[in-house]
Amino acid sequence: MRRKLFAVFILSLLFIGYLAYLNSLPPAVRAYKMARIPENEQLIAVYHEGNFWQFATYNEKTSMLKLYTVSQSSPLWLRSRRVESARALVNYSQVILNLEALKDYKPHERALLFKTLGWKYDGEIYYPISPKFKAEDMYFIAIGTTTSRLNIGAGEEGSSIISWLSGVKGVLTLPTLNNRGTTKALTWIAVHECESHLGKTVQVFYPGITLESDITGVYEVPKNIFNGSTFQKALSYAPNEFKELSIAKLVILWVHVKDEKPVLETVWKLGGDKVCHVLVDINTGKVDGPVCYEKAVG
């Protein structure tokens, strides 16, 4: 009996010591520890909102993206932990963070950490991105997408970022404060022709940096392509005037060819299962929509 009591006493001391250790850590470091991220995964982005934390990681050896989502019922108590994974579409080695940056976090209502941005807080999270697509380049597809939180292309409407690539995910999407000024607030992805033997290159545009990779494997490629000038013209038709865009959880601008005509398709997801979309004929400016519907469940 005494041995059992002594064991319980030792375990209690260890537990109290562990809680004291967690309490001594800066909030971002504490949450990172609670996420239980393996040492072979490098941190590339952090998002924080209240008791909600997200850590995006990249494994250079396996080319895997992971997203750790943790919720705390209190600063020292973990309520839930969820892990998503996907093979990265580009190499994220250039944006791997130094873990020391976690110590620089200052408590705010919302916070975002990305290498080219540093820590951004509250309204600062809204950032401009101007993708530099060359007019002479020929593109298969271009997609701009944003969510209200970090996303690696898993679990939401439109999550297969480049839908014709057999459901490939693996693109880190950074959150924004809101979606007003949609053409500038998105994380842009483009797939275009290149001179390599593979024939296709994917680019992801982040603030201050563009990550690029050859696409490997056999994928279904659209018959029609468009040039950079078409893309720039498409952005002028982006339907930023829709009030619902400012409260959407997910917004996608998708430039592609439909019925042999270049079109800009805008898709946004509201609360619950409501999804809206609109099509704009880039050559004529004709607008089809918007149309909204409740996504079928099950």
Rank of each mutant, 00 (worst) to 15 (best):
M1S: 09
R2S: 02
R2T: 04
R2M: 07
F6M: 12
L11N: 11
L14R: 05
F15D: 11
I16R: 05
A20T: 12
A20C: 08
A20E: 00
S24C: 10
Q42D: 07
L43G: 09
L43Y: 08
I44P: 08
V46Y: 05
Y47D: 02
G50E: 10
Y58T: 06
M64F: 12
S74C: 08
W77F: 15
V83A: 07
N91D: 15
R110Y: 08
L112W: 03
W119I: 10
K120M: 13
P128W: 01
D137G: 09
T145E: 07
A154F: 07
E156G: 04
E156R: 04
S163Q: 09
K169C: 06
R180K: 09
L186Y: 08
T187H: 01
V191R: 01
E195L: 13
S196W: 01
V202G: 02
Y206N: 09
P207F: 05
G208S: 11
T210K: 15
E212Q: 15
S213H: 07
D214M: 06
I215V: 14
G217T: 02
Y219V: 11
Y219R: 10
V221Q: 11
I225F: 14
E241D: 12
I247M: 09
A248S: 07
V255F: 05
V255L: 06
H256I: 04
V257T: 13
K258C: 00
V263T: 09
V263D: 00
L264W: 03
L279T: 05
I282E: 01
P290T: 08
E294L: 14
A296K: 14
V297H: 12
